Amino acid sequence: MKFTIDVLGIFLKVVVRVNRVTFAPLVVSTLFILLTSLLAHCARRLVQKIVKESFVRLLLEEAIAAAELCGCCFELIVVADNFGVATYAIFLFALTIWWSLNWGDATACPYTHIEDVIEGKGDVRKALLITWAELTGGLLVFKYVQMYWVLEIAETHKNKAFEDCTADLQVPVLYGAVVEGIATCICRIASRGLSDLNPRFSTAIDSFIGTSLVVAAFDYSGGYFNPVLATSIKAGCEGHTLIEHAAVYWLGACTGSIISVYLYKLPVIQKYVRGTTEVNGDSIWADKED
């Protein structure tokens, strides 16, 4: 507890000094994201050390991962609004790599557990419990973000803590669901393929694909591709009803994920994966010599 208080105290001193000296709101946002990642990392290590029961530990890790994801993405919205989508994409690319390397078995994403159920790797009860843990972490983290925003250390946080949010959906609900579904499907197929092919820099490649799809969908649905993330940040916002939100960000994304399971099993994709692996085991390019 004392360690956490000391870290927060040092953090606030740093951001106040940086902001006063350089007037760099982007640095303030960066430091907040780093703090959020650090606190989540410490919480994750604590859970791994203390909790012995594997499923309970997984539930807590999922809640922590979802809180970290949503907490960082709340601040990424500030980055996108004030510094552009390109800057947002750079941050997201780096964070996705960090999450991939540090989350372990946690995904902070409900449809991965639906995929496990379909493939016989999990059961419905556990999938629902994990989804509940993810939603809990994703929804509760806003209070933490709000505590920071209310300080208004940077100009970009002025009135941010209590402002009314607006939906990112810029197209009709059906189109939005299709965008989220197709992009999620592509993301999941790419992730599965990279996992099987295991090329060099697979984590960076996966992050690049995901980030590119988010940017491509940014002006249509917001490019969330994760029901928990979308719910934490945009559920209840002005511009769509809860039913419309669920249709786009839950039904759309989950449908895309489910379709990806069956598409990945198609002979044409499996032939490519097996052929590439046999020709050149650690490269995504069949004719590349390492």
Rank of each mutant, 00 (worst) to 15 (best):
V145W: 13
A167Q: 04
W149D: 06
N159K: 14
V179T: 15
T184L: 10
E163G: 09
G176W: 09
F162V: 08
L174E: 10
N159V: 05
T184S: 08
R192Y: 00
Y144D: 01
I186T: 07
R192W: 02
R192A: 07
I189P: 10
E163F: 02
E163K: 10
L140P: 00
V145F: 12
E155H: 08
H157S: 06
T184G: 06
D168A: 11
P172L: 08
I153W: 09
T156R: 06
M147I: 12
Q146V: 00
R192S: 00
A167I: 05
T166I: 15
V171L: 14
K143I: 02
Y175C: 04
A154S: 14
Y175H: 06
I153Q: 07
V150F: 07
T184Y: 13
A161P: 01
G176L: 05
K143V: 12
V173N: 04
E155A: 11
C165S: 13
L174P: 05
D164P: 11
K158L: 04
L174D: 05
G181M: 03
Y148C: 04
H157Y: 03
N159L: 12
W149T: 13
K143Q: 01
T184R: 11
Q170K: 15
V145C: 15
F162K: 12
L169C: 14
G138A: 08
W149C: 05
R188K: 07
G176P: 06
